[in-house]
Amino acid sequence: MYILTGVVLAGIAAALIVFRSFRPAPLPAPAPWTGPLPDASPPADMAIYKLPTGTYENRAFLAYRGGAFRELRKFAATAVLVRHPAGDLLIDAGFGANVEAHIATMPSYRRTPHKPGDTVRDQLAATNYDMARLRGVVITHAHWDHVSGLAELDAPVWMNPAEGRYVDRAKDAMVFREVTSRREIHHYTFDGPPYLGFPGSHDVYGDGSVVIVEAGGHTDGSVVVFVSLPDGRRFAFIGDLTWQMEGVTLRAERPKMLRILADVHPTQVRDGLLRIIALAGRMHVVPAHDVRAYDPIPDWTAGRHSGV
């Protein structure tokens, strides 16, 4: 007869909790959004482009509940350029030239194999892009893999007050504080009405083509950026509400242990993800780290010519 000590029983219980947190457990399906989409009048020459700056690896089971243990996923570090006659805008900045040093600021258990590519600055310079056109960089949130490339971009960084408070206190904002120490911060507020279920909004150009909404939870001031194109297509750049498309297609949130480690307010992240799931049939959703999600967006440097 075996007698299990309290320590052993506690260990078994903890193991069961961890195991269960990785099992598939789809969120309840929200009612699809059936109302009209907000009005948007994007100019005829508006367009968006992706600028991949590298990838890093993670196991699928760490990315979403139900992911395969043996499956390796390449996580994207990609910026998106919005071309607009009133001035261009970047959504996130990807890896920068000092990405190795930025990764080294993370605890060892969070460093994964990675493959840097050309920085946003290098990709723009390769096409003789006029940097005076760049109105700013909207960050979905201030984590290193979204902001590393800011170091090489002489453009205002767009940030809302809640994310400013996160940056002031969070260890995970160390890289952001470093790369923006000599950068202009453009402070914006959610001065617009609720937008597609999100509580507040900011219309960047005043024409509905680019609307930032407050979607805090991953960080205090994390955001979703909605983009409407002149051909009628709509995109939702959702940052890290989920790391992979399965968060939307399978309604699979992060495993509980990862939610505790990665999210400031996990319940808010769940609420934001459910709002996006409800919209998924009406627009293309882009989780920041899913390489596949960028497929419909043309690459900036592919086939570009000097003088753009």
Rank of each mutant, 00 (worst) to 15 (best):
G136Q: 07
T119F: 00
L90K: 12
D295M: 10
L196C: 06
P266S: 12
R275Y: 12
E253M: 03
V137G: 01
S201H: 04
M245G: 09
F176D: 00
L279F: 04
F190N: 07
P26R: 12
P156V: 12
Y64H: 14
A31I: 08
I103C: 02
Y294W: 08
L72A: 13
R111Q: 14
P42K: 03
R233Q: 10
F237S: 04
L196A: 06
P52T: 10
T180V: 15
V291G: 11
A29Q: 15
V248I: 15
R111C: 04
A13G: 14
A173M: 01
H265V: 07
G197W: 05
D220G: 05
L37Y: 09
D220W: 14
D299S: 11
A293R: 07
M1E: 11
L229I: 06
P296T: 11
L274H: 13
I238S: 03
T34N: 14
A293T: 03
D295K: 15
G11P: 00
H202P: 05
V175S: 05
E71L: 10
H218P: 00
A25W: 06
P194M: 10
L4E: 12
K115H: 09
A40T: 11
V138M: 12
T5W: 09
G66P: 01
L134G: 02
L90T: 08
P230D: 15
I277P: 00
I91W: 13
W33D: 08
A262S: 09
Y294K: 05
